[in-house]
Design a binder for these strands. Structure first.
Length: 454
RNA sequence: GGAGAGAUGGCCGAGUGGUCGAAGGCGCUCCCCUGCUAAGGGAGUAUAGGCUCAAAAAGCUUAUCGAGGGUUCGAAUCCCUCUCUCUCCGCCA
């Protein structure tokens, strides 16, 4: 969420910045609502002040045993007027809030301006893609030939975009998560965290998934509130004036699309001490995404799944440190690829390609030989105060005053896609797959995946 | 799932309709006193808004005692709903 003060004072400038992201700011609507809000708020507060003054007088008079009927008569009509004004103000503010919650973050000045992902800028490249002297297979063919990957059975169990792995491949998958977690906790100073995989709407609003990206989530309805939910949806599809005040009165839970949600929301509604910064958290969790709207994309294999695992890095930092922290955090994710000896490149996303909450994002793309291209395996973002403002996540600054924190997150890394990269980059002519050195300890000394391994 | 008890500022805790944003204590900050330490004295110490203002400062003002609604001229206090915590019972990994 953007600072509404900023919108009031520098509307044109902000609208121009947002346009570089492909977001058309609703100037007219915002202007009208803001004017209405100002009038209503002034008027409402005036009435409230009058009421308070009168009530004080009445209390005063009564405590002295004096007659208060005169003052009572004066405020007799205030009630209805006030109630109406309060209701109108509340509606207007809800409408403003609704707009505010839909506005993406402002791009940082260092972010390249662009129209789509082809305008992303390569920042650096690490490693050299291996030369193969046989025709390379993709990870599905490799896994299936080894008898360790069974996608048809996963489809039988759950449907498309789910996977079933067995034996040493399942173990390798587990090993990857362990290895990443160990690296980040032992070498990069993150605190390992176990988090809920189901979160409430408030948390998702805090990190920015709600209200705008509800379709991307798996929602778990609760019978208890089903009726209430239906009602509020019918009456209030867009949080428009006249509807209920709160957009999330339901207490449904949602499967986390990333552990960024629970990790960042740790500081929601909190004022943390200056000395506790930076807070660096990591968690290895499943992630669930409905992938609505991605039909036909990456349908083969493990690249795009409804359920996948990720080791997430979250940093909660002092505002002055956040861009330094972004570089560090990106480096932490890169370390994993370096240790695994997987070639990658780092891309600075352009204005149009960044996520909703980010001011600046680096994507890390790993080399996939069969696709003959680099594919996203991590995304590291600084959100500045965008999430913190939604979450009311603050720290007590040097002057002792509460101030919004900056939040950062990044995948370190997506486990499934790392597994894909290993299968493809470390495949051998005989169909076996070599296991990167750093993972062999986690695999009980095993140095390659071979057919019919249990 | 059933029964009961609770939720007040950074913390503890008082407050059952009237000038209460909230006594008292602890903690913290500043000042005074004291050779050091300890003890003592004084002052201060929530957050988010709005308006005035070029801005800052300042002033005025509103809201907030778990959340939402209601009663009332007036609610921390009364009523309703919900959430969470604790105790007991049941069930369960």
């Amino acid at each position: 969420m953007l600072d509404i003060q900023l919108l009031r004072t520098h509307l044109d400038h902000i609208a121009r910045l947002l346009a570089t992201r492909g977001y058309a700011f609703p100037m007219a609507e915002f202007g009208a609502l803001e004017a209405e809000r100002k009038n209503l708020q002034t008027y409402t507060q005036e009435l409230q002040a009058r009421r308070n003054a009168a009530s004080r007088q009445i209390g005063n008079a009564k405590s002295k045993g004096e007659d208060a009927t005169g003052i009572l008569a004066e405020v007799a009509n205030l009630g209805d007027e006030l109630r109406q004004a309060e209701a109108q103000l509340q509606d207007t503010q809800a409408a403003l809030q609704h707009i505010l919650l839909q506005i993406p973050n402002l791009p940082h000045s260092s972010v390249p301006e662009g129209k789509n992902e082809s305008d992303n800028k390569e920042v650096r490249r690490w490693g050299t893609p291996r030369e193969f002297h046989f025709s390379v297979k993709d990870h599905v063919s490799i896994g299936e030939a080894l008898g360790l990957l069974d996608l048809p059975t996963a489809t039988k169990l759950s449907g498309a975009r789910f996977s079933l792995m067995t034996g040493s491949l399942a173990r390798l998958h587990r090993a990857l998560g362990q290895f990443m977690l160990d690296t980040h906790t032992h070498q990069h100073g993150y605190t390992e965290t176990y988090v809920p995989y189901l979160v409430n709407a408030e948390s998702l609003r805090g990190t920015g998934q709600l209200p705008k990206f509800k379709d991307d989530l798996f929602e778990i309805p609760r019978k208890k509130t089903a009726v209430v939910e239906t009602l509020s949806r019918n009456e209030d599809p867009h949080g428009a004036p006249g509807g209920p005040k709160c957009e999330y009165e339901d207490d449904d839970l949602y499967l986390i699309p990333t552990s960024e949600v629970p990790l960042a929301n740790v500081v929601r509604d909190r004022i943390v001490a200056l000395e506790s910064l930076p807070i660096k958290l990591t968690a290895h969790t499943p992630c669930f995404r409905s992938e609505a709207g991605s039909y036909g994309r990456d349908t083969r294999g493990l690249i795009r799944q409804h359920q996948f695992e990720k080791v997430e890095l979250v940093q909660i930092v002092h505002p002055q440190q956040s861009y330094k922290a972004l570089e560090e955090l990106t480096g932490h994710a890169e370390t994993i690829l370096q240790k695994l000896d997987l070639p990658y490149r780092v891309m600075a996303l352009c204005t149009a390609d960044m996520g909703f909450a980010a001011t600046k994002t680096y994507d890390i793309e790993v080399w996939l030989p069969e696709q003959n291209t680099y594919r996203e395996i991590s995304s590291c973002s600084n959100c500045e105060a965008f999430q913190a403002r939604r979450m009311q996540a603050r720290f007590r600054n040097e002057k002792g005053k509460p101030e919004l924190l900056h939040t950062l997150n990044g995948s370190g890394l997506a486990v499934g896609r790392t597994l894909v990269a290993i299968l493809e980059n470390f495949q051998n002519a005989d169909g076996s797959v070599s296991i990167p050195c750093v993972l062999q300890d986690y695999m009980g000394g095993l140095d390659r995946l071979e057919a019919s391994q249990l």
